[in-house]
Design a protein around this nucleic acid. Structure first.
Lengths: 213, 213
DNA sequence: GTCTATAAGCCGATAGAC
DNA sequence: GTCTATCGGCTTATAGAC
């Protein structure tokens, strides 16, 4: 693919992510995406054929980071290290791709109808692997007997909300935009709740408090 | 207001909730709402003037339940009872109004631009009261020193996701629709994480396990 | 209050010159 | 590859008869 092609596609994808994140798929106009990318609307169709296809391509940009972050849970066979790494990785990718993360959340909320089926399958398989990992830890007594599916869903929702609803945090804490410190506290609080709630013997011990800092 | 007026408005609001929940504000067509309500489109405009106004009225139907559920946290001066009641109340209202809950989530994700300002203020004030309550518990050593804002955001996100993304749970657990038992387990898992993570001395003791059941 | 028919305008997509 | 001009369909909203 030529240099110019790659550059233009990148510009369009970035502009589309922001527009879709701000207004949702249906309320977003291709005219606005083109304007933000600094080119006439026709070029956008030249590169991406249709609005729907452009949207799919935006979503696609989040799948690989998501899968990578998800795998962090199983990097070692230690629940504490795994859960910590998993939570940190999910917050990091949402922070690195704030717009796409929001688009992705919106897409999930509406039933993921526009997410290509192969992506759904990949993400589903990945989730299953993590559930199996959690179950194995529970079976071996390394983790308290919670529902692994629900625990995972909790981690998903918690890490999603901190970034998606950043404006809410900012409003409540009185700031403009979430800062480094907010993300650190978010990770700390989530980690604390998860570890304190499900790792036997950690509870409120000094060891748990270390992770919560 | 006449009997027939009330009945028709109720029909329209119910139909609108379902349509908005399924497709989002912009993708929803007033034609489809009218069809679902079993009346011509013009009647819908006769009762609600505009699509935006109808949407606001749908959102409004969730504010009172939300405020009521939120107040459950402060019913007694006991953190354990309060957090338990709060989580249970939030899951209950989302379950009682599943469509509106989804519409509300979508609206929050897009920045709450269509939520009437007075509602935002009411909800904000309510949140502030809960933050103050949590802070007071922390100051008196009844609660571990977490960020009260972040703790609240977690409870929000966790309780929201369990109902909004029910289809995901169903997919992962292999069921069609979330059942009574799923909601009970959801509440148990969230309660366990929150109590285990932030209530001193509860940790993984038998007392904590009781709440997690 | 109810309904049909239609206005008014917006937006995704493309034709076709350069 | 780039851009302008425009089409064609669709959707909110209303006019006006009953």
């Amino acid at each position: 693919m030529s240099r110019i092609r790659q550059h233009n596609q990148h510009l369009i994808l970035a502009a589309a992510s922001e527009e879709f994140a701000a207004k949702g798929f249906d309320a977003t106009q291709t005219r606005d995406i083109a304007a933000r990318a600094g080119m006439p609307k026709a070029n956008l169709y030249y590169y991406f054929q249709s609005k729907e296809n452009l949207y799919s391509r935006v979503l696609l940009g989040f799948v690989e980071p998501l899968l990578h972050a998800s795998a962090a849970l199983r990097e070692s066979d230690d629940p504490v290290a795994g859960l910590q790494a998993y939570i940190a990785a999910r917050i990091r990718i949402a922070r690195e791709h704030p717009h796409i993360a929001k688009v992705f959340s919106s897409e999930l909320l509406l039933g993921a109808r526009q997410l290509p089926e192969e992506c759904r399958d990949l993400l589903y398989a990945e989730a299953q692997r993590n559930v199996e990992c959690l179950r194995s830890w529970i079976d071996r007594g390394l983790l308290a007997p919670v529902d692994p599916e629900h625990l995972m869903l909790f981690i998903w929702s918690a890490t999603r909300s901190y970034t998606n609803l950043g404006w809410q945090i900012a409003h409540i804490t009185g700031q403009q935009t979430p800062q480094d410190e907010d993300y650190a506290r978010a990770a700390a609080t989530i980690t604390r709740l998860v570890l304190g709630g499900v790792v036997p013997e950690v509870g409120q011990s000094p060891r748990a408090l270390m992770f919560a800092t």
